[in-house]
Write a protein that binds this DNA or RNA. Structure first.
Lengths: 177, 177
DNA sequence: ACAGTGTTTTGATGATTTTCTAATCAATTA
DNA sequence: TAATTGATTAGAAAATCATCAAAACACTGT
């Protein structure tokens, strides 16, 4: 978590983005970058050192100059990876659930409804979290919430009731589990 | 470019990451988040509003509460997309200008003032970018900015006025194009 | 209309961060 | 070894930003 935040902070600066974009085109050195961005070498150095210690850029000496280059692998992962907090799991039952969830959800969407009953229950319970207890939901409202996860809201709504997670009474839905 | 930087800045804050991770699990509202993070509602509101105006979260009223939810599509793209400056060069005119600029500038300095009027205009326009609209510049200030590109600031300053890029009024200069 | 509850705005404060100047360091070549 | 040139560090000024308290606002139910 800490490192991810550091990386995000590094990238969230106009000057550093400019530098990265220059390095994207070609390797370069302090003075050249400073000149092109109309900033002092000291400033550029400050940024490069910061990025170096985070592993975003590398440097090596070549004659007079110290050439900086990009560490491009860093930018491969999706943004989602960077914002997601990776949490510690102790209990094995909990661990199993986590795994199922992470297998069936991608970027916060349900990729498919599991056929195995046990997995289906776990996945539905995950979506169920969006509903508060002690609140009534209209059918339209229920559909909209489920739609954020999967297009087949009918099946999911029906299954939630079948699992006893929700009750329906005259078009009014309530969370019960 | 501007929007990308805004998004990165939004994500580069510990509190906001915490909030996002809470919303990743389930939709929530100001007081609840404030309580869980041990911060005041005012602070959480500040962050949520900021994220809302960037399209990262959405909100809708539900009874007493204003429920905030994530706009998950935002996080799909790879990090690379966010740092890459997209320069769209469609029309040939733009392309031609690029070429002139890259021919006459080396390491951010103007190597010589073009004699061809058309090229001179392009090159001057490039330097002109350093000046803000709606700001007054003293002559000394103008010279200093131009000096970053070429030693003959007199010629360049004069030509900028001749081309109608700047106006001078009692030693006060303004960008107008 | 009014009280109650949750949200938002405002203004102030403190922390963090970028940038610069000036001084120092490190490698190269005469 | 001294002079040159590029890179880095230290310290200070300036800008940005998160946070809070207090007040204002908006909706709900009596």
């Amino acid at each position: 978590m800490k490192e991810k935040l550091e990386l995000l902070k590094l990238l969230a600066d106009e000057t550093r983005l400019e530098i990265l974009n220059m390095l994207l085109k070609e390797d370069s050195y302090v003075e050249k970058i400073a000149c092109e961005l109309s900033l002092t070498p000291a400033t550029i150095c400050y940024h490069l050192k910061k990025m170096e210690s985070a592993g975003v850029v590398n440097c090596s000496r070549s004659q007079f100059y110290i050439i900086y280059s990009l560490n491009r692998e860093i930018f491969d992962k999706p943004l989602f990876e960077l914002i997601k907090k990776d949490e510690v799991i102790v209990d094995t039952e909990e661990k199993y659930k986590k795994e199922v969830v992470s297998n069936f959800f991608k970027y916060g969407r349900l990729t498919q409804i599991p056929t195995q009953r046990k997995k289906r229950e776990i996945v539905l319970a995950e979506i169920l979290k969006q509903f508060d207890f002690d609140r009534k939901y209209g059918e339209k409202e229920v559909n909209e919430i489920i739609l954020r996860y999967h297009e087949d809201f009918c099946t999911i709504r029906r299954e939630m009731i079948a699992f006893g997670m929700m009750t329906r009474d005259h078009e009014i839905y309530k969370r019960v589990k």
